[in-house]
């Protein structure tokens, strides 16, 4: 028998409302000067929004383990790619003395 999860419409609508509120929050926070915290706030909200879309709109929350693995693999691997930044951040450092 085929057992396929169908997310009810109410869940979609709730998630949508939260997403729109978060969008407003991002915009509002960007109008306040928080220094480096502006970035943190913007990216945190973006990650929350993306996670909501990922879990509910894309239905990963109700998926099999295998789907979980592959759905998160790409995002995790993106972090590896960001290892490129290590090069740029450490270029100015002087090599350890005595080496």
């Amino acid at each position: 028998m085929d057992t396929h999860h169908i997310t009810p419409i109410s869940v979609y609508v709730k998630v949508y409302v939260i997403l729109m509120l978060l969008l407003f929050a991002t915009w509002a926070i960007s109008r306040i000067q928080l220094g480096p915290w502006n970035n943190v706030a913007a990216m945190t909200i973006a990650i929350i929004k993306a996670t909501l879309v990922f879990l509910f709109f894309m239905g990963v929350k109700y998926s099999s383990k295998l789907t979980w693995v592959w759905a998160t693999a790409g995002f995790l691997w993106l972090l590896v790619l960001f290892g490129v930044l290590i090069d740029y951040m450490s270029r100015g450092w002087i090599p350890v003395k005595g080496w």
Binding site: G92, W93, P95, G98
Partner: peptide, 17 residues
Amino acid sequence: ANSASNRSGTDEKVKGK
């Protein structure tokens, strides 16, 4: 190449070692 950071004086140590 290393001037983004500092400073002189330590160079002597490098040389010595």
